[in-house]
């Protein structure tokens, strides 16, 4: 397939409108074609820039919410009898015909609570799924004969290699005097977004560090460091300056934490 044809797929890919098979095909092409990868990156940047420019552009007047709540509570309005969760001054309704009409709405209000709750639940379940997928990538890297695209122990070689390949930059820690060694890095795609996978060595154990643009599904409610253990691997994830870091290794939790501390310190610079 020619680049011309692949270009038609890029938007759908970035919008998550492709099947897994289609996405895999596009990723294969993006990994080998610099021109299409650059085009995909440009479109991703426009998407991100649009979101940033349009979000919270218009902020409601402080009293608008109250005005709307009051208008909904207006006694002439039949739905005022709905014990809607957002009304703090809820009076228990008298059983009138009006209220009975609103009963369906009352059930609806309960459903609403369930929905909000289930969204939150699926997000944290989504995070588990995200970590499981990244662990798969780490294991695949260990099994690969070419684990990295840029092989160097020098962060000044590895970091610039990602320039122009990612819509963001990141800092790598100075490892002199630590037991960690940089092995290299490679470009990876996660949820249709390019990301960095860095490989570190600790006493012959390999640790992957994924640095991705933060996404709702990846973010735990609290911004603190979350530690997990899965299939014999220790993992740590946190969010810093709009980036999501995930450290995965078959080393001890303390070692994963130590590398995480180095990365967090570098990220603050």
């Amino acid at each position: 397939m020619s680049c011309e044809l692949w270009r038609d797929w890029i938007d759908a890919y970035l919008d998550d409108g492709c099947t897994p098979e289609e996405s895999a095909g596009i990723e294969d092409h993006l990994n080998t074609c610099t021109a299409c990868a650059a085009e995909a990156l440009a479109r991703l940047r426009l998407k991100n820039a649009t979101r940033i420019a349009a979000a919270d552009r218009f902020v409601p007047a402080p009293d608008l919410r109250l005005r709307i709540e009051q208008s909904i509570q207006n006694p002439r309005n039949p739905i005022s009898a709905i014990p809607f969760v957002a009304f703090p001054r809820f009076k228990f309704p008298v059983l009138t015909k009006q209220w009975k009409q609103g009963l369906a709405g009352a059930a609806a209000a309960l459903v609403l609570v369930v929905i909000v709750g289930s969204v939150w639940w699926s997000r944290s379940a989504g995070r588990q799924q995200a970590l499981a997928q990244l662990l798969d990538m780490h294991v695949a890297t260990l099994a690969s004969s070419n684990p990295v695209d840029v092989a160097s122990t020098d962060q000044h070689t590895v970091k610039p290699w990602f320039e122009g390949k990612l819509p963001y930059t990141f800092n790598l820690p100075v490892l002199d005097g630590t037991p960690f060694k940089l092995v290299g890095g490679k470009l990876m795609y996660y949820r249709n977004r390019p990301g960095a996978q860095l490989l570190f060595d600790l006493r012959k154990h390999q640790i992957s560090v994924f640095i991705l643009q933060d996404q709702p599904g990846l973010t735990p409610k609290s911004l603190g460091v979350a530690t997990e253990r899965q299939r014999g691997f220790n993992e740590e994830t946190w969010s810093q300056a709009g980036l999501r870091y995930i450290v995965i290794g078959d080393t001890s939790a303390a070692d994963v934490r130590a590398l995480g501390d180095l990365l967090r310190a570098a990220g603050r610079q």
């Binding site: 552009r57 218009f58 902020v59 409601p60 608008l64 909904i72 739905i79 369906a104 609806a108």
Partner: peptide, 30 residues
């Protein structure tokens, strides 16, 4: 509200629209 303003390009229209949307949403929730 942000979307309503982007759609209508006008504050008063956006406010009315959001209000009416909530009223209709509650009525239509079933």
């Amino acid at each position: 509200y942000n979307l309503a303003f982007w759609l209508t390009q006008d504050r008063a229209t956006a406010e009315d629209l959001v209000q009416e949307t909530y009223v209709k949403a509650l009525k239509g929730f079933p």
